[in-house]
Simulated scan of single mutants.
Amino acid sequence: MELKKISEHIWIMPYESERDRPNLGYVKGDNWSLAIDAGHSDNHVKEFYSLLESAGLPLPSLTVLTHWHWDHTFGMHAVNGLCIANEKTNGHLLEWKNKIETNGPAEFLAIHESIRKEYAGGKEVIVVPADILFSGEMTLDLGGCKVRIVETEAPHTEDSTLVYIEEDKVLFLGDSTCDDFMTGIKDKELCQKLEAKIKSLNPETCMEGHWVPVETSDTLDDLMKF
């Protein structure tokens, strides 16, 4: 696996289908660095950090979550610095933390084969909540690089967060453009709301959770196919 630079301030550790690992984003400003999503497990985080260190990049001071799903969040206990999430995302994390600590990981491991591969060999499943909660929108100035963190309605989950790096005109979408996680249905009204939010940010490049960087028009065309 290689770290890929996709713009002036942004690198990614690319997604992997076998263990359902999403892209992990990294944004470097003059004063701070930010990761986008916290990975599937501590092993995922360790591999990401090893790539950053090999590239001479400092570990992230902050990590922001795009939504609660385990492949994007269950590595949180191993991240450097503080984690940011919207309040809905944090609520889901607290729910799963309680489930696993009370009943063990069996329900979680039963969800999908990719999870069992990530946690093979009896690896411990650890869920922690975020350190910083927000509602609506917040802006971070990393030093010569502003990042907008924006809650949005979206078809995949009800807790989606978009991360827009203004200077690079790159938008991280997490899995927000995908079908509803529970039903497999792609709600037209929610797609229209997400489309409007993306257009209001006006990115040139979109970075989905489990895909390569593409032009915004490609993402919008795919989003609005029913």
Rank of each mutant, 00 (worst) to 15 (best):
L82I: 07
C83D: 00
A85W: 02
T89Q: 02
L93K: 04
L94T: 04
E95Q: 15
W96L: 09
W96V: 07
K97D: 03
K97N: 05
K97R: 11
N98Q: 12
K99A: 06
K99D: 08
K99Y: 15
K99F: 13
I100P: 12
I100L: 07
P105S: 08
E107I: 11
F108R: 06
L109W: 07
A110W: 06
S114K: 09
S114V: 09
Y119I: 03
A120V: 15
G121M: 07
K123A: 15
K123I: 01
E124Q: 15
V127S: 00
V127D: 01
V128H: 07
P129N: 12
A130F: 05
D131H: 14
I132L: 10
F134H: 13
F134K: 11
S135G: 11
G136D: 02
G136S: 01
E137N: 09
E137V: 04
M138H: 05
M138L: 15
M138V: 15
M138K: 10
T139K: 14
L140D: 01
L140F: 07
D141E: 13
D141T: 10
D141M: 03
G143V: 01
C145D: 07
R148I: 07
R148E: 10
R148F: 04
V150I: 14
E151S: 15
T152G: 00
A154Y: 01
P155W: 08
T157P: 01
T157M: 08
T157C: 10
